[in-house]
Design a protein around this nucleic acid. Sequence first.
DNA 1: TAGATTGTTAATCGATTAACAATC
DNA 2: TAGATTGTTAATCGATTAACAATC
Lengths: 208, 208
Amino acid sequence: MNSVNVPDIIVSRLPVYLRALQYMAINGSTTTSSQELGEKVGISAAQIRKDLSQFGEFGKQGTGYHIQFLTERLQQILKVDKVWDVVLVGMGELGHAILRYQGFSHRGFQIVACFDSDPAKVGTQVGPYTIGNVSDIADVVKNAGIKMAMLCVPATAAQPVTDKLVEAGIKGILNYAPVSLTVPNNVRVQYIDPVIGLQRMVYYMVGK
Amino acid sequence: MNSVNVPDIIVSRLPVYLRALQYMAINGSTTTSSQELGEKVGISAAQIRKDLSQFGEFGKQGTGYHIQFLTERLQQILKVDKVWDVVLVGMGELGHAILRYQGFSHRGFQIVACFDSDPAKVGTQVGPYTIGNVSDIADVVKNAGIKMAMLCVPATAAQPVTDKLVEAGIKGILNYAPVSLTVPNNVRVQYIDPVIGLQRMVYYMVGK
DNA sequence: TAGATTGTTAATCGATTAACAATC
DNA sequence: TAGATTGTTAATCGATTAACAATC
């Protein structure tokens, strides 16, 4: 599928469009334009049209885009028209918060298992989940054919655990640990580091 | 300061370099090269040298960069050679996890106050913090001259709370709510949405 | 129909890379 | 010194924008 070969930077914007469209739908809109969508997400109308044109023609001259239709097409393109199984590794404070977060399933993801290396935590119940031992990750991932993982372990454990996950067949890692990971180039990593976000902003702060 | 006018995209990479350098220092290294640093963070050596050259000459031909020196210079450039006060709004599960996270202070940020709109939470103690009422945010922010905020409120509350924060003088918002925010162009927003990260990766997943 | 908005092209703009003289 | 690596230039590459014919 994937048309010819769409630039990463375009793919990376699609989820943002999708999120905005779903939000508009909730608020009762049925139609939008590249102009309106662009204002919502802070991207030019021309760029939105150009991005979408990589995948087909989804709008109508004069009227714009039917929100539900475009939403479904973006979900198909992004492959979130089905729900992906994800494993969660590292059950500290953050891991617990993620496990309890309700916002994954309706956007294409469900956590199916969680793991920790601390013997005091392994076997413990967290809501509907029983914390598994990290040493069993490979089996679980392989047997269930799971492709995605979220990583909430301490920085020092992040690379070794990543190596295990990759070995087990994981192809996408959402990394909450504040370190850059090294992975083969058929494996994707996305980083979540709040401090990086803060540091990117203070550069522009004046005074104080 | 800010040299002439450094492209956003370069500024956005500096925190990643800084994080890698600090990690190297912990592991006992004293010197690195653009080559080595590039491998760690997944960026070409040429680009790292080009990025740094925007701000000065920090290396030595033949030997590379002194890690501690470059670290300090990046901290100065990014303005994280001092600690910034930050307010946290929204004390759900995630807000609690953020409040307990130990990783902010040594990277330039400290949470000085937290807020919620739920009367059942306001006045409650969370570690050393007492949850304040959102209606008091403006006063606290103005009086203390606070410039940065973290936003962990539900999606529906995100824009109204943002408007209040901006009104109160906040210039940088780390937004955990899964919505795009509209702000004046002298205010910066960075987004933390794990689902966006996951969606950016599944596009590339094959099969299943 | 008239007005609005798409999809697309060409032009512009900006970012990345390759290469190398300078020099530690 | 010889080897290594910087800072920088010029060339390449890619992304964004402006503009407009097509058309709903």
